[in-house]
Structures are given as C-alpha cells and as structure tokens.
Design a protein around this nucleic acid. Structure first.
Length: 488
RNA sequence: GGCGCUAUGGUGCAACGGUUAGCACGCGGCCCUUUCAAGGCCGAAAUACGGGUUCGAUUCCCGUUAGCGCUACCA
C-alpha cells in the first residue's frame, strides 16, 4: 500500500474539478483543500478544471464565484482553469476510439430518463426502481435510418479492481455495471453529441496526466466504470482517494436547509480564511495526534492521504466558530491586522494614518485589546466601532442597565473634570482618579466604571475600562463623557 | 429493490490486539472579575447489537441493525 502511495518524486498531479451548476459548497471546498494540501506537500501540480459539459444545467456566471471561493480559501492552482466545454473534440475522438476498438457501441434507444425497453429492469419490489444493465444495441441492432445514436460503453464480463488510498483495494463485479453512455445523442442543431461525466473525467485525467484522483466518496461507485474506460483507452488508472462526505447536523447530506453551505457566505460573515481552512482540514482528516490548532504551514507539513477518515462527518458550526475565535486570539497580531484593515475598509472606518508609524502601533495595540471579545470580523466595525470612529451611538439597553442610578450624570461630570486635569494619561492614573472620586462621593467604583464604559464606547461590553481609556486617549474620553452627560 | 461504503460520548478526531478508552467542540459547575469575553480547574457523556478468532478485543472475521452513496444521454 505504501509503495503505491510513494509518489514523492515530484511528479504528483492532482486536480479539482467543480461543476458550475451551483456555488462552491463546503464539501467541494474540502475536496479542493485536500487536493491542494496533497499537491503542495508532494511538490506536485494542482490543476483546476471546470466540468461544464451539461449545457442545460450549467450556469457560467457561477464560475467566478467558485474561483473567488477557492482564492479566499487560499487554494491556488498551477494549470487551468480548463473548461470541458472547450475541449469537446477530445471527448468525441475518445468515444470514436472506443467505437473503433470495440469497447463501445451505438445506441439508438430513446434518451428519456428511465428509458424503457432494453435499458430498464423493474426492481423486484418496492417503488418503481429500475436499472440499466445491458443494452441490446451492443450486439449491433440495425439502426433506424434517421435516429440519432448515443455512444455507450460496452461493459465486459469479469470484475474490476482499483486501488483507493483511503479505502484500500476495491473490487466490483462488472455484472453490476451498466452499459453507460459516453457520448450523448445529438440534440437540436448540434452536429456532435457532448460527453457525459464519465467520459469527460477519464479523458481529461488521462490527458492531464493526473496521478491521484482525490474526490468525494460519492464517486466510489463510479470508479469501476472509469477504470474500465481507462483500459479501453489504453491508459493506466491513477491512484484514487475518496474522501468521506460532509453531512448536516441531522446526518443527512449537507444542503441549504442546514444553513450556509456556500463557502462565500462564510467569507461574508467574516470568518478568517485560515480558521475556516483549519476547521475544514480536520473534518475527515487527522494528523494522528491531539493537536487541533494547525496553521496552514502545519497542515502543509502533516497532510497525508493515510490520515483521511473513511466515515462521513457532520459539519459542526459551533466548532467552526470556536476555531475562528481561537485564530482571532492566537494569531500573531501582524497576521491579523490585514484582515481587520480590510474589514474597516469595507465599512468605511479605515484611516490611512493607521497604516504605518505611530498610527500603526496604536492600531495594533487596539486590535490586540479588542480581539478576545471578537467573534467575527465585522464585530470590529460594529460592536467596537467607537474605537475607530467618533461617530457612534450609545446603545439604549446599555444605558438602561448601567445608568439607572440618578447620580450617574453628576458623577460622570465630575469624573470628566478629574480626568481632564490628569497630567499623565495612563492606566494607573485613570484607575486612581476614578477610585478616588468614587471614594469621596461614597459610591462603589463599579458604578462609575460601568457607567463610564457606556458613555465612552456606547456599549455594555468592552475591554477593561482603563485599557479602553488609554486606547481612546484623554481628549476623547473627556469629551465623550461630557457629551454623554449633556445628552442625558 | 440491487450493489457498495461506514459504525468510539450530542459533534469532530486519538487509541492501528493489552490504556483507569485520550484530546477538542458543545453542555454543567467552580475560580478569576469592572461589563462581556478570554483563561484556569472540575464534572456528566462513547466503543450500535449478536456471534466468532485469540491468553486477551474498540481494534481481526461473520451476521444483524442503522446511516450514507451509486443505481441519468447530472456531475
């Protein structure tokens, strides 16, 4: 087994092959990620191929969103994107080759789903389950003069074996494999038919010299068909690696009704791409130990097909959120800053003075102060808006909670005066000034602390007060206190 | 229905014949405390079931059950 996996000769070639019939969902994203990790780990080549052979379902406008999602995830590629719709001649030639060497035949049966007659076999019981097995056209039925045939693969007798890096060696009886369609029958004004998925993947994987096919486990059953096709085309099958599927909380296949499945929605929500990547990598893969916080460089170091699990996994959003808060807190501050900057730019709060020098230092310290309480990137521009802008409002609920005592306005006015008189502005000086006032006024320091917080940042929740005061600066704190008192 | 795949706490993973079955998320409690987080400590919680094989099974084999996948001129 390990000999087959020993592909460390720099010749590894993998691909991610999305179909633009929908957005990039988390399952596809993880497949892309595994391919990418494997390619980079093995110093191989990553190829991107868009499988858009179904003209009816294909939505070209979705391609960009898929590419954007991959880019956000940090999954890049070395070759492509290739589009199958632009390589049709290749597939037609391959189908003709099969026809010529006897491994395929012309099929004149009607194209409707669950086509009747030769293709359909009633299930012995239950609902109308039918399946295609052998088509009588394979023996050269006389063609209807003006019928437009499809090209079907002529599945031979025997059994088909292939190696799967995750599931091990697999064997299927060919009796279970139907004579599947290679090239669709001609439709409309087209001169030639278009390839089905089975033909497209194999022809391209051969043409692109793919060495490892890493894809969802839903393709295990398709694999013997493809192996047969490889042989018919005179090519050697690659190593397959089927990765388990991602399920929703109810263990059914993940779909929209389980919430967000579009990767781009996580970007919009404000997850850190590296956190998302870490979370995704650990869904169906493990390095073997207990480590969980694996930055991209760690994943790149540890990733292997042997660590891929064989059991379907549930997409656990709370855990994703945990990863995100972990990254928000543990990332070296300079790694986090660009993300925060981008967020502030999006919300129009960014100031260029924070890009360098003293402004940058202040920015870094402030973000560092804020981050233990941040859950998603947009929190920087909403919840902690008052740290980056004077244009903020006081949350009525916060005021209701911490300004109940009628003495508050008077106390804050006095505090503003005391703070304004401070010669040095730092944590301890603010601390002493506030506690001294609380003492002379005969109130608990907590009353002043909580009321002040609301006045200067407009929120009931914020970082420790005196750190917040230092971050905002003397002038702002005093003026915000006075403004809040005046507005009461 | 047929074929295939899978089966460790609610969830994601460890343990690849011998452990008091480990870690993490989530959940509950305590500590810390200036709000809310973060952090620290403690706790509840699992080998689907039945047969084998073996001195010994979470681990290997068989069956059952359950879930999922494929069974399209979709991918």
């Amino acid at each position: 087994m390990s000999e087959t996996l020993n592909t460390t000769r720099g010749s590894v070639r993998v691909r991610f092959a999305p179909s633009p019939t929908g957005y990039l969902h988390v399952g596809g994203a993880r497949t892309a990620l595994f391919n990418w990790l494997f390619a980079r780990r093995q110093h191989g080549t990553m190829i991107l191929r868009v499988e858009d052979t179904d003209a009816e379902r294909n939505k070209p406008e979705l391609v960009q969103g898929i590419l954007d999602g991959l880019q956000w995830l940090g999954v890049n590629w070395d070759e492509g994107p290739f589009f199958q719709s632009q390589r049709l001649e290749l597939y037609r030639a391959a189908a003709q080759k099969c026809l010529a060497n006897g491994s395929a035949f012309l099929c004149y049966c009607p194209a409707e789903r669950y086509a009747g007659g030769d293709h359909a076999v009633e299930g012995s019981e239950g609902p109308a389950v039918r399946r295609v097995v052998r088509c009588s056209c394979r023996d050269g039925k006389s063609p209807s003069p003006d019928a437009k045939p499809a090209i079907r693969f002529k599945v031979p007798a025997g059994k088909t074996v292939f190696f799967d890096a995750v599931f091990g060696e697999r064997e299927f009886s060919n009796e279970e494999i139907e004579d599947f369609v290679l090239l669709r029958s001609v439709r409309g004004d087209e001169t030639y038919g278009s390839p089905t998925y089975q033909l497209g993947v194999v022809v391209d994987d051969v043409d692109m010299r793919i060495t490892h096919v890493i894809r969802g486990a839903d393709h295990i059953s398709n694999t013997p068909k493809q192996v047969l096709l490889y042989r018919a085309l005179g090519a050697e099958p690659p190593v397959f690696a089927h990765v388990p599927l991602i399920l929703g909380a109810d263990k059914s296949r993940l779909s929209k009704r389980h919430g967000a499945t579009d990767v781009n929605m996580y970007r919009t929500e404000g997850f850190l791409p590296e956190a998302f990547r870490n979370f995704l990598a650990l869904l169906g893969w493990s390095a073997g130990g207990d480590e969980q916080f694996l930055r991209t460089k760690d994943l790149l170091e540890k990733f292997s097909l042997e660590g891929v699990s064989r059991t379907n996994g549930v997409f656990d959003r709370p855990k994703l959120e945990w990863f995100n808060t972990q990254y928000l807190q543990k990332l070296p501050i300079e790694d986090l800053l660009p993300e925060v900057q981008a967020e502030l730019k999006r919300s129009g709060l960014w100031k260029e003075e924070w890009a360098a020098g003293a402004g940058h230092e202040w920015f870094a310290k402030t973000v560092d102060l804020l981050r233990p309480r941040i859950r998603l990137l947009p929190d920087f521009s909403t919840w902690s808006r008052a740290f980056f802008s004077d244009d903020f409002t006081i949350d009525p609920a916060a005021k209701e909670k911490f300004w109940r005592d009628p003495k508050v306005p008077d106390l804050l006015a006095k505090l503003a005066d005391a703070l304004a008189a401070l010669p040095d502005w730092n944590h301890d000086a603010c601390d002493r000034a506030l506690r001294a006032l609380a003492e002379t006024e005969g109130v608990k320091a907590g009353l002043l602390i909580n009321a002040t917080r609301v006045a200067i940042v407009g929120q009931a929740v914020a970082p420790p007060l005196f750190d917040t005061m230092v971050a905002l600066g003397q002038e702002r704190v005093v003026s915000r206190l006075r403004k809040a008192v005046a507005a009461s």
